[in-house]
Design a protein around this nucleic acid. Structure first.
Lengths: 229, 229
DNA sequence: TCAAAAGTGTTGAGCGTACACCCATGC
DNA sequence: GCATGGGTGTACGCTCAACACTTTTGA
């Protein structure tokens, strides 16, 4: 199968772990494989890196093609380079993880011919190739990173309540947080701005909506500030 | 130049940023390139990933071949996948960084035909390809990681004084630390064990030597402990 | 009027920080 | 005996964690 060019070359692919937040579940987007190997099994979206695109472009293109997702938060995770990852031939894969606003994107997830579906983390099937391992590394990274970088906002609507934000952290970290301390800390960092709007259609007092103030955050960064939950 | 296999494939290489600590300088190991492109310029050690070795094995093999270094601390850094990294053809490179005990390894660094040399960080030449960028990412990672993982010990002899350890942090982080607070914190984490030995041949009171207790650290980890400087 | 979540302050404990002097040794 | 770094303790301020009740709204 493999090709010679002085030495034979490993193939290079990308794989994406796409996280979305759905009410009270953190979910991952999986693709059902049509072809062997692992036909009929679920796998991470991904594919070969072409010679005329950067690795990140490849990840974005595959996401677009396989899931319809576009303009998502995307970050390189790790490169998986073991020998037996793919039974067909030697394949090295650069893994990325993506964070998407689920509500805004759900509709598009099935546009492609291939079947794409969101799975809550505790209801995931076992995955093809070494994708279980890739997923675990991604989830671990998300749990760590969300604590010291303001990436959680990528999973929420642009305007959100403090309770939504708190639930996000509770879901990702898998532990409850104290409401007053959480608000104090978040508001104290001065990276949220309150809007004049309130949530709609709830059967109780409506909560104020906030936005994440990205430019303010970037300014603070330069002055040595660092985000922390 | 490039090969076809349905689509042409990017070539895959590894590059290593090797750090060593020399008295009061943090240094990096560079290779002088013999061939075009960038002949005569300095570059990070590295080379092509073969089809019958993992990516990490490739990094270790290249280190061994080009610098004589063996059994070093090695960790994957990031994968660089831009289009124009190499003027010859499309090359994607998985970068690693390594930490070595300089005193123990210096002698071997020149065994290979190629010229290898240690450079203090503030006396580094500009590097071939995008290696300047790779180096910067590696140094940033080292500065961050040394604060929350006990990897600094990889740069010191097995037995070291607390002052050596403190100097290591001061050099890597580029800031002075308070001696009493540093000792209190280090000893308080219970990952160092004191030996019965003292440093030799100094023209003042000899300092006690300590060792890093790896298994103790790993036990503490399981109980939710986390290292921090 | 009831249910459900929003919103709000204080206190105590532990931790990090700042800081200065005596000790041991080799020359 | 002097120069050099080794080694040690305390006090203060700040941050973090624990904790409960009133308010608003819709049904």
């Amino acid at each position: 199968m493999s090709v010679r060019y002085r030495h034979a070359r490993p193939a290079l692919t990308v794989d994406c772990v796409v996280f979305g937040l759905d009410q009270r579940d953190l979910k991952v987007l999986l693709i059902e494989r049509a072809l062997e190997p692992f036909a009929g099994q679920w796998a991470l979206p991904g594919g070969f890196v072409r010679i005329d695109e950067t690795v990140e472009q490849a990840a974005r293109r595959e996401l677009q093609e396989e899931t319809g997702l576009d303009k998502v938060y995307l970050e390189q995770l790790y490169t998986f380079g073991d020998l037996d990852r793919d039974p067909r031939e030697r394949v090295v894969s650069v893994a990325y993880y993506a964070l998407v606003r689920l509500a805004a994107n759900t509709a598009q997830a099935n546009t492609d011919a291939r079947k794409a579906e969101w799975f809550a983390l505790n209801r995931m099937p076992s995955l093809a190739f070494d994708h279980d391992r890739i997923f675990r590394v991604a989830y671990e990274r998300l749990q760590n990173k969300v604590c010291y970088q303001p990436i959680g906002f990528e999973l929420l609507p642009k305007k959100f309540t403090l309770s939504q934000l708190q639930q996000l952290y509770e879901i990702i970290l898998g532990q409850e947080l104290d409401k007053r301390n959480f608000r104090k800390k978040m508001l104290g960092m001065n990276v949220l701005v309150e809007t004049d709007e309130y949530e709609q259609g709830v059967a109780h007092r409506a909560a104020r909506l906030y936005r994440f103030h990205k430019t303010k955050y970037q300014e603070l960064l330069k002055r040595g500030f660092h985000f922390e939950v």
